[in-house]
Write a protein that binds this DNA or RNA. Sequence first.
DNA 1: GACTGTCATTGATAATTATCATTTTGCGCG
DNA 2: CGCGCAAAATGATAATTATCAATGACAGTC
Lengths: 236, 236
Amino acid sequence: MKLIKINQAWNGEDGCVNCNIRKQALFGDLTRQDFDLLHLPILELGLSAGETLYHADDAASYVYTVRSGMIKLVNFLPDGEYRIVRLLRPGDLAGIEALNARPYLNHAVAMQKSEVCQISLTEVELLNEQTPHLCKKLTALWQQVQNDADVWLGQLTVGASGQRVVRLLLYLADTAGKSEFVLPSGEDMGAILAITKETVSRTMAELKRQGLVQTESPLARINYQGLEQWLKCVDQ
Amino acid sequence: MKLIKINQAWNGEDGCVNCNIRKQALFGDLTRQDFDLLHLPILELGLSAGETLYHADDAASYVYTVRSGMIKLVNFLPDGEYRIVRLLRPGDLAGIEALNARPYLNHAVAMQKSEVCQISLTEVELLNEQTPHLCKKLTALWQQVQNDADVWLGQLTVGASGQRVVRLLLYLADTAGKSEFVLPSGEDMGAILAITKETVSRTMAELKRQGLVQTESPLARINYQGLEQWLKCVDQ
DNA sequence: GACTGTCATTGATAATTATCATTTTGCGCG
DNA sequence: CGCGCAAAATGATAATTATCAATGACAGTC
């Protein structure tokens, strides 16, 4: 984990005011005056792929706004297996459950080179008392948590393995905003879909053979409509 | 759905002040003064088993605090199958996602005879602006959403069918606070665990044979520690 | 009390997926 | 440029689970 820079929260060309994802993120609704209430500068951190942002049950002091890349939230099972319960994209907030002095629920690990802003929990709680602008955004971020859980439970852990893989590809394309995106490792895809990496590999191979997916090193490009069609046709 | 009574929010013997689950519920932290800000009385509704509280995508005007019984949140899949994504117990809030003018995400259906309090969304939003006491509770309720999603994704949709059934039984005992509770139908258990009702039935039969579970009409009594042991031993 | 529909149970079989083993590929690093 | 490691791909087999079908239990109704 590497310190990239320190933002003087509002001012300066690298301040929040110029942040390209601020609108969607925690501080999206704050005014100039609100920012003046912040006591500490905001640290921006760089993570390389595989690096851990925090561990479950860590005493939590920060939440993190994802600026770029992708962070996975991981649960470890008693038997050593692991399961990915959520993927965080730019604009998402990691560690939101730490509000009200709760521990982190999961491990947060970067899946790619990523950047996050580290925000002190006490600052968030103070701000939340002194301005009403944070509350709405927090609610929206909580709704996002529920939304994601809904997709996970309703689509990604149901049905045949092929359907799950295809739905995941569509989901990744949706969140990336385009049909080209960084493809998670086979093991990670398995941990998301609750199937083995071998089954993932076989399904991906089949989809490539059908020309619906192309991979190039870490990137995948998918035929979005083709995969949607595939979902409808198969249904088996 | 049947109107049971109308609570004058604070006053009276049937008011919120005397509610046995208020401490954990949405209004748990409100003061006498806060209640005076409420304009409308609170309706208490009775649901019989199988009755629908609201549908996904309904224009949402209310949230509901569960007072007794159990409510399931259901998603329907394109192919007609359904999936239960959460179970709501006394103290839980149904329709929390409707804050900020969002539609309901799921269908809410009573699994047993249940009672809920109907709370107007506009009242919640007004209260939230005028007193800080609601915000903390709301956060706690959101955390509960995430917590449940975590359990669902991390334990109930992973591993062999037997493990899933056992983990669900332990979960139901935990939320009921005792080892005796109303057992969902086989189909519902399947919809929670993403397995078929037949597989559920076979597993339950085996557990009964081993004396770890007893059923009596709608109730089940489990040997909690025995099932925990079973989980450890099996691991297969 | 017979009827009827719903739900649970159980069996037989087919399909799917996990597991284990092996080979291949790709990539970082000296 | 090759070495070595890790991840992916692939094959063979076993185990699990879904599916289909039939039966049994039970509650509500006329």
